[in-house]
Design a protein around this nucleic acid. Structure first.
Lengths: 203, 203
DNA sequence: TGATTGTTTGACCAGATGGTCAGTTTAGGT
DNA sequence: ACCTAAACTGACCATCTGGTCAAACAATCA
């Protein structure tokens, strides 16, 4: 509840959130147990609850922390830059997130799949507004003929879908590619660059 | 375990699977309870377990049933047809599945997210082989210069990601689009047709 | 050193949950 | 109408799980 004050509080809160991310992202909210989290964190269950009021409090803490960093790449999309460069850059940054922070991606996916009970308002508020803002930029680029005209919001959806797929469906991706292809990300990056370059090329 | 024999067995198995799909797709395996499923099915819990040996047995029955119908659209992709038509057709059929059977899509997504513990071998076996087979077709189309050259497996991934997104992330899609746009699917279909047409146009 | 505050834990609890079972009710064939 | 097998149920159980609490322990500072 209250913010960390002492060194120990800071360290243990961190440890707990890290362990909780591991467990929640693997089993979902309902599938994760406090005992598992405590075990991974190397702390006792009552000690966990000394730092967080409840299981849900841990989950909420993770999600709100996540939402900020998750949307940063989109925020970084600059109206003054070169449109195609900006968009491809966004795609690549999002793909890097999928590669480097797959647990966060799965945590988010789990939450949305269940109907986003804990972050619905954030999605209808902050996210909705951010997308409105950025699609206005996209629309102006289209008006200027600097990128091809497509539905800007569905364009953003397509970026999310295509990049997150590599984190959320990692098991499937690797199983389908087979054991010969240990790291799908380089080729994914190339494929997505091709895809969005062709989609957006002004015509 | 054993296949349904009598009329009652057939009807009740059906009812249970329908209820289980509803509950599992909404709450995940761990989040769903037998009591919930029994309630939705309008049967008592012991009666549920008269038809299925365990909670897991219900889940497995659903998943194996699902896998067949889920891959049918890909199976239907015909080597003798017109490449772009075949691919766009596949995309549209997959999008229709997302629109008409979102619960099945979410059930599948849930399973993959958790690491596919119950269908791993099916994915490494049947799915892997089907994708190999179909990417050979894609490759031959590319060799003939009838569609642009891209990584065939990532092309298939992109179709899955883009279409399933509209079922699995439905809440997000609707929240971001806002209440003015009640049905995202028509515009999604148009967007995806544009996307794949431009991506695949021979050059 | 002692007092105070912050940290940790074993033991415990109430409710939920998957599953069992003995026994009752119903359906279908004769 | 009767019999048999199928269908169904209330009561029950063991286990799991989120959470509590009083008491023990550690750190910090006067």
């Amino acid at each position: 509840m209250t913010r960390p004050r002492t060194r120990i509080q800071l360290r243990n809160s961190e440890t707990i959130l890290e362990a909780a991310l591991e467990v929640f992202s693997q089993h979902g909210f309902r599938g994760a147990t406090l005992d598992q989290i405590a075990d991974v964190a190397g702390l006792s269950k009552p000690n966990l609850l000394y730092y967080f009021a409840s299981k849900e409090a841990i989950h909420v803490a993770l999600l709100s922390e996540l939402l900020v960093t998750w949307l940063d790449p989109l925020r970084a999309m600059n109206a003054d830059g070169d449109p195609v460069t900006e968009l491809i850059g966004y795609v690549q940054r999002k793909l890097e997130l999928s590669r480097d922070y797959p647990r966060e991606s799965r945590l988010f996916a789990n939450e949305i799949l269940q109907g986003a009970p804990r972050i619905r308002e954030a999605i209808q508020g902050d996210l909705h507004n951010l997308v409105r803002e950025k699609s206005a930029i996209l629309r102006s680029w289209m008006d200027q003929g600097r990128i091809a005209r497509v539905h800007p919001v569905h364009l953003i959806f397509s970026i999310w879908a295509l990049t997150q797929h590599y984190a959320d469906f990692d098991v499937q991706v690797r199983a389908v590619l087979g054991p010969d292809e240990p790291d799908p990300f380089p080729e994914a990056g190339q494929f997505l660059e091709t895809l969005f370059t062709r989609l957006l090329a002004p015509r």
